[in-house]
Design a protein around this nucleic acid. Sequence first.
RNA 1: UGGGGAAUAGUGUAACGGUAGCACGACUGACUCUGGAUCAGUUAGUUCAGGUUCGAAUCCUGGUUCCCCAGCCA
Length: 586
Amino acid sequence: MKDENDGLAGAEGEERKLDFVRQIVADDLKTGKWNGVVCTRFPPEPNGYLHIGHAKSINLNYGIAAEFGGKFNLRFDDTNPEKEEQEYVDSIIADVRWLGADWQDRLFYGSDYFQQMYEWAVELIKKGKAYVCDLNADETREYRGTLTRPGKDSPYRNRSVEENLELFERMAKGEFPDGAKTLRARIDMAHPNLNMRDPIMYRIVHERHHRQGDRWCIYPMYDWAHGFEDSIEGITHSICTLEFENHRPLYDWFIDAVNEGRTDDGSGPWGRKIHHPQQIEFARLNLTYTVMSKRKLLRLVKERLVRGWDDPRMPTICGMRRRGFSPEAIRNFCKLIGVNKFNSTVEIALLEHCLREDLNKTSARVMAVLRPLKVVIDNYPADQVEELEAINNPEDPSAGTRKVPFSRELYIEQEDFMEEPPKKFFRLAPGREVRLRYAYFITCTDVIKDAEGNVVELHCTYDPATRGGDAPDGRKVKATLHWVSARHARKAEVRLYDNLFTKENPDDVEEGQDFTASLNPDSLEILTDCYVEPALAEAKALDRFQFERLGYFCVDPDSTPGTLTFNRTVGLRDTWARVQQKGEAV
RNA sequence: UGGGGAAUAGUGUAACGGUAGCACGACUGACUCUGGAUCAGUUAGUUCAGGUUCGAAUCCUGGUUCCCCAGCCA
């Protein structure tokens, strides 16, 4: 922790630029506002899977704790039994851990504080700051007024403390049906901030809670619960997203209401003051060509528009993991996008940059042919096999080398051959010589076609003097192709992914349509006739590789020794594809 | 129309009254046994109008635009 603390200054010793949240934390540390304590938290509601937007929050909160020598809590904000499930709790724990945030032994549940919250609610009633209201949901809305018109007081607003106490107790005992009564804060029905118009603190819900069982039938609302969850845990900086800015006055009001009549030494009538954290809001992450709201992601899953929460096209953490993302790539992305107070949309290209940057350094290279074209080396002995040495990772010499089998019949990529090549096409063509990576120079001598005129097989000759890939006479070739030996290759299925949506902003649709109208029909392409080099036979789920010249690939959990299955995480930067596109554009 | 926030290259983000910088993208070129990686370079910006100041992205005034709020969701 010490090192990272020192890391406030960059490696070169220059000041690291602090985002506005870190600036606040640094200032608080300087002024001693919290006596040198820093405590943050990530407070997900277990009603969905985590996505890349949550990763931004996790990295912010955990990063601050780590950098400033503080603590980081993982806390489930499980105050609504109707939406929350253990499945989500489990997935969130796994995802936060995978992302590398360490909460040590501080895994908490807001629902564990229900009794304390209940007692504070009783205290507010006694202080005349809360009342039981019999208005139903529709009436409550009517009484609330509108953005421009003030609300009006509930007819139940002036019940006596005794009556409120009795009614609230009976609510908690389960004497009333769902929705019959609420406990509300007595603030100001004419307040310009609607959140302050006597907000509901408790509602009646006869529903089994995933942790509390049937112990409660009244459940606290977010505004009432959240500040106390932070307070109880000693959170110093309660970091949340922009839409809660309007709720901050209420966050503060509730804690101040409890603290009224309390003192620092506990001498007053209500005892010792409770901790009052500072809420700070930042802008949530938006990414081009994807959606980030839980509601929309849930819809994609429920309507089977994707294969599930962990579909590799999803921006969920589990989807990205299955796609082949590394936590490091995601962390670095979060570092680059920064933190601010205004809505912005980050280009997916930046995420892909971070991905490639990490994968380039860490992925073992391997050869695979996605769309095979058979090549016969006519002058190579029919029963000969050579083991050629290949480098596992040019970016990491310690990764060593491996042997790749070479024989007379090979597969190369269909797109690496053109019968009538345009000027800028450097790869194989009739009469042209190219290099097979780590193997030999070959020259195309004959093209075999089927009845429709499709190229189905190539005949070539090889130059035995170029073994290993270098010509002793110093002659050069303009292209190096990847290949696999037909006899030794393993068959594989490869799933290619593209953006899930065709539009930068999927919500940019015509009247009457919704974001599903922007779904990309070509976001998944399954190739079943692929060949990979034999070294891959042992690959395990989630192992990451670079298929040379093609991109980064990851073993899908569906993969079995019999049917190897890979996901394309992201392609390599492809200069040739761009040259081609420009050619088409002209 | 009430209240709360916010505006810096195409995108994301710095500059805290003193030369508007960085990253991604795009485009050149060098190098290369991955048309990858790497390296060098080019491109392009302070929402607008006033004011204060020797000096304004930064301070002040006014305008414009965008986001959030009327769940017994979080």
